[in-house]
Amino acid sequence: MFEAVSRRAELPAGRPVAVLCAGGLRSSTVISALQRHGVGALHNVTGGMSAWVKAGYGVTRRAAPPSTKAPASTGVPLVDCRGLSCPWPSMKLAKAIVEVAPGATVEVLATDPGAPADVETFTRRTGHRIVERSESGGVLRFVVQRAQ
C-alpha cells in the first residue's frame, strides 16, 4: 500500500485506473489511500483475482521465488510459528489441523531448529502425516496432512 502511494506519480494522468488485488479488500484500502493523496478516477475491481478464477477464466502464475516471506494465500491454512520457540509449533499445529477437513493439508513455517522434532512427535502421536518439508534461509516449512 505504501509503495502504491509513494509511486503514485507513475500513474497515467487523465485516464481511469483500475486497482486489483486477490479479493478486493486490499485494493479498496489502496484506493482510499491514493484518494487522500489527491489521485482521482480510481475503480476498485470487486472480488479481485479470486472472482476471476472462480468465473472460470485462466491465469498464468510466475514460478514462486525462494523467499522467507509467507507464500501468498494458496488456500492452504498457514500455521506461522516463525520466531516462536518450543512448544508453539506443535500447539499451533494441533489447533489448526482440526480446523481443516480430513485429508486436507496445513502449512507450518518455523525458525526454531527444534521444530522438526516438535512436528514429528506431534504427527507420530496423532496419526497426521508430514507430506512435504523444506528449508530456505533459516525458515523451516512443513506441509501436514490431516489423518482420514
Partner: peptide, 29 residues
Amino acid sequence: GLRYLLWELVRKPTWSSGPARVYAAPAAN
C-alpha cells in the same frame, strides 16, 4: 505453565503472532 500456554493459544492468539525476523541464516543454494 502448559495450561497457561493452552489458554493463550485459544484466547489470546495475537500474543504469539506478529512479525519475526531471521538474520545470518545460511542462504539457500
